[in-house]
């Protein structure tokens, strides 16, 4: 009886968490692409207008970003202006939760068949590197280590702190702006 009542609540909480994380990541992706040259270099190889999606199957939360050119990303929220080019699909909400709550590394989740890639694999590989870079920026080192295969050695603390602060600031302003809009 009790489990029956508790479970939908737990899954509701997971759903909200995943949705919120997608929002934070989407905004952070846009912000980090404005300040970090490593991310910009990675992104420059993507075609202009390239649409990237992360989503929870079958029809759950979504994160959509577009490459605007020059290595800059634009966060589109959860609706794409046209069909996306590459989609990373979590097979289940639970898998998305494991990854986005940093209990399972993105690379491990791939290895564990937790998600599918739809579209050009080489672009998906590139986006995974961008996401890793993003996670090591915005997360405290102790959590970032759990999230990415290797914590970049060239990410020294001052740079990390200042950039992360800038990203947080940008994310925060973006939130405020969209709340106003």
């Amino acid at each position: 009886m009790l489990t029956k009542r508790i479970q939908p609540m737990a899954s509701q909480a997971k759903r909200l968490y995943v949705e919120l994380m997608f929002q934070v990541m989407g905004r952070a992706l846009q912000a980090v692409s404005e300040v970090d040259s490593v991310v910009q270099t990675e992104a420059k190889a993507l075609p202009e207008g390239f649409l990237f999606e992360m989503m929870v199957m079958p029809d759950g939360s979504k994160l959509i970003v577009e490459h605007m050119g020059e290595g800059r990303f634009h966060y589109h929220g959860d609706t794409a202006p046209r069909p996306v080019d590459v989609s990373i699909k979590f097979k289940h909400l639970t898998h998305a939760f494991l990854v986005l709550s940093f209990q399972e590394k993105t690379s491990v989740a791939f290895a564990h068949d937790r998600m599918l890639v739809d579209g050009d694999v080489s672009y998906a590989v590139r986006m995974t590197r961008v996401l890793n870079r993003l996670e090591s920026f915005i997360l405290p080192k102790i959590i970032a280590k759990r999230a990415v295969k290797e914590y970049p050695v060239d990410l020294h603390l001052p740079e990390k702190l200042t950039s992360a602060a800038r990203i947080y600031l940008k994310v925060a302003t973006h939130f405020v702006q969209s709340a106003r809009a």
Binding site: A45, F110, V117, V121, V125, N132, K149, E150
Partner: peptide
């Protein structure tokens, strides 16, 4: 090589 799908499964970044 860095764009090849198999690189995701290499144990070391």
């Amino acid at each position: 090589a860095l764009d090849d799908g198999s690189i995701m499964f290499n144990p070391k970044e």
